[in-house]
Each structure stands twice: as C-alpha cells, then as structure tokens.
Simulated scan of single mutants.
Amino acid sequence: MKRLILTLSILASVVVSSCIPHKDTLYVQEKGNKDSLDAIVEQQRPYRIQINDILNIRVKALDQDNVKIFNPIGEKDLNASSVERSYFDGFTVDIHGNIRIPTLGKINVLGYTTEEIEQLLEKKLLEEEFKETANIFVTVKLTGLKYTTTGEIGSKGTKVLFQERVNILEAIANAGDIPVTGDKKDVLIIRQYPQGQKIHHIDLTDVNVMQSPYYYIQPNDMIYVKPLRQKAWGTGTNALQNLGAVATVLSVITTTILLFNRL
C-alpha cells in the first residue's frame, strides 16, 4: 500500500511539474502599475535612419515632367511584388550612411528622421535644380517595416509590414502567434544601433509591456522566442496530455516486467 501511495505521489508530482501554468499562456496581465514617463517619451521618439534601410522618395512639382528622374518607375512592372519594387526602386543607405540621388549625388542620411530628410532634399533641390516657383514637394518613407522572427513562434523568417508603427504584439500576431510551448515571459528583441546590436528582454504576459521603450518594434529587429523547459522535456502542454504520457510509460514498463517474469 505504501509503495502504491509513493508511486501515485511521484506520478502526481511529474504531471503537475511538467504542465505549463495557465497564467504563462496569457498576454498582458495586471501585475502592478509601473508607469514610466521616460519609457513613454522613448516610444514617441521618431525612428532614425540606419545602415541598410531602404527609403522610398517621391518628388512632386507643378510640372511633373521635370521631376521624373527622381521618381521610381518600377510600379509599372505588375509581375514584381511591392517588396521587390521597393528593393530595386528604393534608395538603400550604404555602409557610410549615404544614399545616391539622381543629379544630387550622395547625401548622408544616417541618424536622420524621414521628416528631416524631406526638408534636406527640398532645400538641396531648390538650391541646385529648381526655383521657388516650381513648388517642390518631397515625401520620404521607409519602404515597409522589415523584421525577422525565430525560435518558438508560428512562422519563422523575415516579414514586411507597410505601416509607420508596429507594436510587438502585432508583429507576433503577423508571424502566427507564440504557441503554448513558447516563453512569453522573456521574449528577446535584437535591435540594430549605430554602435552595433543589443539584446532587450520584454515580458508579454505583463500589461506594463505597453509602457516599455521596446513595445514598438523598429526596422531590422529580430524577435526571438525561447522554448519553455516543458518543450525540451518532451512532455505535454497540459495535465491530461502528461497523464497520457505517464500512462503510456507505465504500460510499457508493466508489459516488460510481465514478459520477463514469464521467461
């Protein structure tokens, strides 16, 4: 009887310890107020251009024929996707932080915002190519927000969203969400800076993640989701699955013992 009780106790411990708690599967739970003004201010800061970013630049004027040279023509190729067109027709920031504009040559844009680049290009065009009466109007946008997902997530690989701002939850939803076996408490964001790459940790189960300076992703971010220990153990994701696994193991052991006893 004691052996039976001990066996059942061990089985119960295995089932409970190898289950994934329900609270670890939920997003944005109330875990205490941690409002931070600094984090909110950081979120509102505009993105500053980095190396390898691709810019979409449009120049408009009263006489549009005069600015054709500045505008991409790949949109007429219906066989090319929007991502492919942006790669071939966009202006890529080289390793020195420069873009190369027709007639204007190389212009350094590293660390500038898109609004600052618009003002810079308008000024240079008026100084070197046009008069005030041409009514030059320049728009500059990033050619989509590109990021990469890897680890324990629905869809791995590079994604592109054509939005100005994308938060981490939207990015993960676009990648097929995090399965039950993914660690939502410690998601890694690998971000590119002029000085190199840095790793940031965020807890998606905490509602205060929305106050994090890393809540909104940036171009070229990599999102890595670690697997939970239960995934490495090969156990089920809930008590019923674990009980079934334990029952299968016990059945195999019992059968083996019976076979040996018959020999």
Rank of each mutant, 00 (worst) to 15 (best):
L55V: 03
E122Y: 14
V16M: 12
Y87T: 12
V140P: 00
D186L: 09
I202V: 15
S86Q: 04
A61I: 08
Y27M: 13
V83G: 06
K159S: 11
A61L: 02
P72V: 07
K231P: 05
I73G: 10
C19G: 10
T25K: 14
R3A: 14
L62N: 13
K23P: 02
L120T: 10
L104K: 01
Y112A: 12
D53G: 01
E129D: 09
K68C: 06
N79F: 11
E129C: 14
G196F: 01
T103K: 12
K2T: 12
T114G: 04
Q50E: 09
Q64N: 11
L250A: 07
H201G: 06
P21C: 02
S155W: 12
T237S: 01
L6N: 12
E128V: 06
T237I: 08
K231R: 08
D221Q: 00
F88H: 07
I54L: 10
R45N: 07
K68D: 11
N108W: 02
S17P: 02
S251F: 09
I136R: 01
P179F: 03
V83K: 07
L121C: 10
K34G: 14
Y216Q: 03
V225K: 05
G236M: 07
K34Y: 12
A61W: 07
E75H: 11
I199V: 13
L120E: 13
F70I: 07
I178M: 01
L121M: 07
S9H: 03
A171Y: 01
K146G: 11
I40P: 03
R58P: 04
Q192E: 04
I199K: 11
Y215S: 05
V59C: 07
K146E: 14
T150E: 08
R229C: 10
P227Y: 02
E116F: 13
G90V: 00
V207R: 14
P72Y: 02
V209F: 00
V252Q: 02
H200P: 05
I101Q: 00
T256W: 11
N98A: 13
Q163E: 13
F162I: 02
I5S: 05
F88L: 13
P102Y: 06
V207E: 14
I253E: 13
N108C: 03
D24W: 07
F91G: 01
R229T: 15
E152I: 05
G97L: 03
F137Y: 15
N208Q: 15
N242C: 08
I178F: 03
A61F: 06
N242D: 11
F70L: 08
I217A: 08
I172Q: 06
A232R: 10
E116I: 04
E152N: 09
S17I: 12
T133E: 12
V14K: 00
N33P: 04
T143K: 14
K34P: 08
I253W: 08
Q192A: 13
K146Y: 09
L142I: 14
K185Y: 08
V83P: 00
I57K: 00
N238I: 05
L121Y: 06
A232K: 08
K146R: 15
V209L: 04
A171N: 02
L240K: 11
G111M: 03
N174W: 04
K68Y: 09
N238E: 01
K68W: 06
Q44P: 05
T149W: 01
D94R: 06
F70Q: 03
I73L: 11
I20T: 02
